[in-house]
């Protein structure tokens, strides 16, 4: 029998990762909580945003003093960008700041839903790929958009399962399944997870990894939730690789039908 293992690495471009849980670093009460949750989640990759620095000389430490790039793979995002041009410039700034070719590309098309602008995302991805970026695009659950991004050279695609920060769970299992069946690159489910079972569902569908932020950061107790998410992602992955039983409409007895006593 093969050894049971949750050490099941995957590749994004030329990088190998062992944790299939990628976390965001937003909405935490403190840097300490941020680090505690990153540790409890077992995540290797943590996303960050780029924002104006506080010019007050009395400012405290920065996030990267706590979430050290030596310890975590820091994935800068382009959150808040509504045009391809803004996203491209933000990605370049992230590269300068972190000495990384990685970027989580987000070009938002609608303020209320935070749905991606697919056309602008494709445009920005093309520019950034040509500049040598490793582009991980946040995208709608549209198989064609995901196929286009993969064909352009994105080493993974990151379709949403529900709006960012909504915690509604995996609302689109059919779309995600089509993406998983038709896209050759890793599929990271990004946005929508609200609780551990959602993360397990995403992994059981065959997602390569799950990216979440609010589900941990806004749990009543974020640190134990981070651990719950770690276990859920591992459990979901192991269930996926184990192959679930087929569903049946009617019962199938688990106890033998032979040898039942006549009483």
């Amino acid at each position: 029998m093969a050894a049971i293992t949750t050490k099941d690495p995957f590749q994004i471009g030329n990088r190998t990762f062992h944790s299939r849980l990628i976390i965001g670093s937003g909405k935490y009460a403190s840097f300490e909580e941020n680090l505690a949750c990153a540790e409890a989640s077992g995540a290797e990759v943590v996303t960050v945003a780029l924002r104006r620095v506080n010019l007050d000389p009395a400012k405290g430490p920065s996030l990267l003093d706590v979430l050290s790039p030596e310890r975590f793979t820091i994935l800068p995002n382009t959150a808040g960008c509504y045009t391809a041009e803004e996203a491209v410039t933000t990605a370049r700034l992230g590269r300068e700041l972190l000495d990384t070719d990685l970027v989580k590309l987000e070009v938002i098309g609608d303020e209320r839903t935070l749905y991606p602008d697919v056309a602008a995302t494709l445009e920005a991805a093309e520019t950034l790929l040509a500049e040598g970026f490793t582009v991980l695009p946040y995208i709608t659950d549209d198989p064609v958009a995901c196929q286009r991004l993969a064909a352009m050279g994105c080493p993974a695609v990151m379709p949403l399962a529900a709006p960012i920060g909504s915690g509604m769970g995996i609302r689109n299992p059919a779309s995600l399944r089509i993406i998983l069946e038709t896209v050759e690159v890793p599929v990271i489910v990004d946005a929508g997870v609200g609780t551990a079972s959602d993360a397990a569902v995403a992994m059981e569908l065959g997602a390569t990894a799950v990216l979440m932020n609010t589900a941990i950061a806004q749990a009543k107790q974020p640190e134990p939730m981070a651990h719950a998410m770690r276990m859920a992602v591992e459990a979901g992955r192991l269930a996926y690789t184990s192959g679930r039983m087929p569903m049946r409409l009617y019962a199938s007895a688990s106890s033998p039908l032979d040898g039942i006593a006549r009483l």
Binding site: G24, S25, G26, K27, Y28, N34, T47, V48, A49, L50, R51, R52, V53, L55, S62, L63, L64, I74, P76, N77, A79, L93, L97, L98, I164, G165, A191, L211, M212, N213, T214
Partner: peptide
């Protein structure tokens, strides 16, 4: 001039 740093984000 814009001076940016990494902050918490998803």
């Amino acid at each position: 001039i814009e001076i940016l740093e990494a902050v918490g984000g998803g």
